[in-house]
Nucleic acid binder design. Structure first.
Lengths: 334, 334
DNA sequence: GTGAAAGCGCTAACAA
DNA sequence: TTGTTAGCGCTTTCAC
């Protein structure tokens, strides 16, 4: 049997309440008794049981994190931002991978509630009605990180994907390609993908072009699918000389796909990515890309959650962080 | 107030015990009553409270995971392996980043115990005596993943780092360089680093060379430090024409550091990495490297932990997984 | 097959 | 400043 608060109380000749007070830093304890208690805690090697504490206080100081895939270079960066802020506010994280599988997502949300998390951070491409329903009946605060809920009803932290994609596409247009190619990994129902797409389309239309479906290539987030996209592009006759890729990892694949066929980037064709993961500087040529502050999105989402958990006032529950474009060497200098 | 097992019992005209039985799939319940209970659970929207359950049963079905940095491409892959097997055995994961900071590590271990995890998976470079002491008094099973405890007293899953480094170095020697350079990120007290180093040294000695300290370069795990190492190498006069780098990410830095100065890999100088992270195929030339099965290490470590948690018999508590070397294009073909 | 009741280890009134 | 006591929501004997 482990040593409990009761053992400490008995050995220190005080009540459980007093022990509880010193453990919780309650100031209403005479310094002398505090010291006495602290000593016997030390002596017995007492370690508070967080589960019992959670049952009694209805607070677990842990938050749930549902993430598509922690091994993704994009999401793991987000997760780090979440954990750092969580640690700062004395929370721990229960982390689960969903693989963007709807059933699993719904099941995980439920598991998190069963485990009595004090809050939930959710990441995932598609926020369906079922998601919204389950999330809206949540017993605890929820915040979305890098995932947009079209109904705008759940707190979230994002960048403006539409404008970001518009700007990336426009950069390419200004550099001389009237209808850049778009390589995307469209998930069904993904509001993020939708917004990137519509930013892309808007840029094309503003350049007085009508959108050519042939120039929109479906890939699947992987590096390899980027390489395949490159091949597909080279097989077109008279293809546009610029491509906008919706994630950095695929963009690396596109670049290498070109290079492997002897096509030079950016001389023969330009490439811009999205996210600015660490990969962007780990290629040659270095990748021009849209900077999405992943760590910050995670950190801010967690901070937002703490505000809800502490009933602090929040001004704006749908935070939009700034983005920008870094021009590196995969696009032509002006 | 939430709906509890007591509410369900009352509404279904049975005892709490019976409700508990159906919730836990205990067969000793008449099908009719089971159905009745299930119906009222559904009707009331009852959701078991895992915290209360944990307090009563002394099992939380969650395991702690202490990891140096989840945003690392190496560790996030390990974490994925851990979570997948955890999910398979119905556990959740409490994940915390330690940054390999000893105080934080020790504190985190304690927090995990307070939270009453059923087991603990630990990753970290240095297993000091303090670590061993704290881990040995653990109330629950522990397993180390990709981290070696020199005292060999804690269950672990690893590859043989000494042999792996020996083989990588030997490959370079056989390709014609008698004393390859070694770029490492030596942590103090890191048994893994130590073993890699000693494999490297053994290979050099077997080639009848004495080790030249000048050819051992300290970096810090980062891509940038790899680039700096490359520069340092190019500044040596008459440097060896092969370098063994102790992680893939640094190896990419080394390759690009060379290329940025117009030095060709592998024609002018060969490079081999370590780990075989996804990065290894995302460079040009693709990286020859030591394959460390990161996902599997995580998965096996978690599986090992489940065995301990279920009191299954385990034959070997220090598992050594196979490794191999993939020769890609950063080394010369035979 | 089902129920009664005693905890699990702690917090949080409330009293003193 | 300190102690008493009633739960928190569940599991788990032990009876029946």
């Amino acid at each position: 049997m482990n040593v409990t608060i009761y053992d400490v109380a008995r050995e220190a000749n005080v009540s459980m309440a007093t022990v509880s007070r010193v453990v919780n830093g309650n100031p209403n304890v005479k310094p002398a008794t505090r010291k006495k208690v602290l000593n016997t805690i030390e002596r017995l090697g007492y370690r508070p049981n967080a589960v019992a504490r959670g049952l009694a206080s209805k607070k677990t100081t842990t938050v749930g994190v549902i993430i598509p895939d922690i091994s993704s270079i994009f999401f793991s960066e987000l997760a780090r931002g979440i954990d750092d802020i969580a640690t700062m506010y004395n929370y721990n994280i229960i982390l689960s991978n969903s693989d963007q599988n709807k059933d699993k997502e719904l099941r995980l949300i439920n598991t998190m509630f069963e485990k009595q998390v004090d809050g939930l951070i959710y990441m995932g491409a598609a926020i369906t009605e079922d998601h919204v329903n389950q999330l809206k009946t949540s017993p605890v605060p929820v915040s979305l990180a890098a995932t947009v809920d079209a109904s705008n009803t759940i707190p979230s932290v994002n960048i403006d994907y539409e404008i970001a994609a518009y700007e990336a596409t426009t950069l390419l247009i200004q550099n001389g390609t009237t209808h850049p190619i778009y390589v995307t990994a469209e998930d069904e129902d993904s509001a993020v993908s939708e917004r990137k797409y519509s930013g892309y389309v808007r840029a094309i239309k503003e350049a007085n072009q009508s959108v050519n479906e042939e120039y929109i290539i479906q890939a699947d987030y992987s590096y390899e699918s980027g390489m395949e996209a490159a091949e597909e592009i080279l097989n077109m006759n008279d293809y546009p000389k610029a491509v906008f890729v919706s994630t950095d990892e695929m963009a690396l694949g596109v670049i290498h796909g070109f290079q492997d066929k002897g096509v030079q980037v950016p001389e023969d064709i330009e490439v811009v990515g999205f996210d600015n993961t660490r990969l962007a500087t780990m290629v040659r040529p270095t990748l021009s890309t849209v900077v999405q502050p992943m760590y910050d999105i995670g950190a801010v989402a967690m901070r937002l959650l703490t505000k809800f958990m502490n009933n602090e006032k929040v001004d704006e529950q749908n935070v939009v962080l700034p983005h920008r474009i870094v021009e590196r060497n995969s696009t032509k200098a002006e």
